[in-house]
Design a protein around this nucleic acid. Sequence first.
DNA 1: TTGTACGCGTTATCAC
DNA 2: GTGATAACGCGTACAA
Lengths: 334, 334
Amino acid sequence: MKSKPSLIDVAKRAKVAVSTVSRTISGKGAIGQETQESVRRAMRELGYQPNRVAQRLRSPTNAGGLIGLIIPNIQNPFFADLARGVEDAAYAQGHAVFLCNYDEDPEKQQLYLQVLQGESVAGVIIPPLNEDDPEIERLVRAGLPIVCVDRSLKNCPIDKVEVDNRRGAFEAVRHLIEKGHRRVGVITGPAHSSTGRDRLAGYRDAHAAAGINVDEELICYGEFKEDCGRRFAAQLLDLRKPPTALFTCSNLTTIGALHVVAERKLRIPDQLALIGFDDMLLADVYTPPLTMVSQPSYDVGRCAAELLFKRMQNSKQSPTNILLSPKLIIRKSV
Amino acid sequence: MKSKPSLIDVAKRAKVAVSTVSRTISGKGAIGQETQESVRRAMRELGYQPNRVAQRLRSPTNAGGLIGLIIPNIQNPFFADLARGVEDAAYAQGHAVFLCNYDEDPEKQQLYLQVLQGESVAGVIIPPLNEDDPEIERLVRAGLPIVCVDRSLKNCPIDKVEVDNRRGAFEAVRHLIEKGHRRVGVITGPAHSSTGRDRLAGYRDAHAAAGINVDEELICYGEFKEDCGRRFAAQLLDLRKPPTALFTCSNLTTIGALHVVAERKLRIPDQLALIGFDDMLLADVYTPPLTMVSQPSYDVGRCAAELLFKRMQNSKQSPTNILLSPKLIIRKSV
DNA sequence: TTGTACGCGTTATCAC
DNA sequence: GTGATAACGCGTACAA
């Protein structure tokens, strides 16, 4: 196993100095025509490829463009789409993406934040686990370009790209109400989750706008997990005065709720209407096709990457907040 | 923006030599009790974190454990699960994963292969786009630990973890035949895809085992994309003698086929039976619940990572091939 | 236009 | 036990 050729090897072969090779590659400084050619030839012959590690060690910011993306769970289609958006935008700019999966685990998030720092990434995109995160705030102050996505940081001016959860939820629940539903059960996220809170706020807004009092017993707070969707859907349907419609606030909880629907052989929308947050693969071929609040997840990622690149170029500009609109896709489940 | 503290800063503060600090951290060599303590204190006070870039530059193999994972498409749940398996196994070993998405684009695959090399990763996990890939073969020969997953390389001894596609397809189609179907349409992958070929082979096996001649007009070769599923499902159903059952060879083609089913308001399984390769999120709550060939995608990733670690420790052992079994999950679509 | 020399933060090899 | 120092591969100021 012969080790990879370095700049020095190329220089030797082309009979020039290393700096000449370096300049030929970067295009900085003036280089003679024939010198360039012999250098390029030597590179080809040796199959030279730059050592990105050395590049970043030497000049952390400019070279070996690398950005970090830390997401809660790559198996969640929302984050997969988001990641793809980041990736595409980065690729277009010649940047590579270091993708980390923190599994909603604070320690792992911490660890990856450190790893990325240790890797001298030029910037980081992250949906922070908590609204207060001293470590992220420290990094921001230390000058590391960071863009928050999906979720955000309280009391910290920072670039961010979010989805208008409140509005999305509002439109969904308004639609339910317009269709005559007066008891709409909602399964939202935990109280400390801003997305969960915002979606619940939209739920309340829609009720307020229609002059309907919200029956607090119709509100369930749970993790954004399938299991919670299942449990709370069952709980809601077992109420003495059960809801006639369900608003599930994430793709996973929607699936959990659909399990209950299947088990109890409920007919949608006759016996139970349903709207879920997050569109999913089979939603439009489900029987009946599911009405959903579709998030522009890919765009969130793309915008975040673009925002990050701007920040990387100009670290002094004041933070930009972008709010993307979700879209109510009306199908047949209401 | 003050730059991050380095070993040197720690050494200064603790009033020792850098080598002493380095040894204290790595635990190699004997260090005096009090020296250790003062070093650790200095590290804490400065908030020192190792520079992984410098570590890898200095000792590419041992330090800053980093492995690369290059996948075709992170939005495909199969690969998302696989990635998660890799990630979990790597995390357990203290390795970080550099995840790249090549979008089934040969150039991008090439690029990321180079990036990973440039990053001095300790090893790479990849489902190769093509069965012949000179570049990957070159890297293997150059001594870079590489594990192939899902797909593989022809004529190249290499560690790999694959799913028994042929057997999975065989069981699915046998099930269809046992239920009385004699005309089973199949939508498989392109001819150059080994997974597509293997699944088609299983389809043929099942027919042969039952003594049924395969009508070649029931076989469609397409990309593993939703669009193809749609087009070919329609084409098959428009045959003069249409199939009574469909076997779709990937999650995306299954979805495409289900679109056609929805458009034509076909009742499953009465008017059309269906089995798809790859289980998916809503499959079990679909009406009717969909019978699927479930791949152990997470395990593929986990096994691959473990194989890679073994290879990284012992580069001389002969290649290991692991074949994982898919599982036919019988629900109600047949 | 080209070459020399230094430093980025580490680890490893010496000598003490 | 500890300290000084040479690499790792690259970019760049400075000299030629």
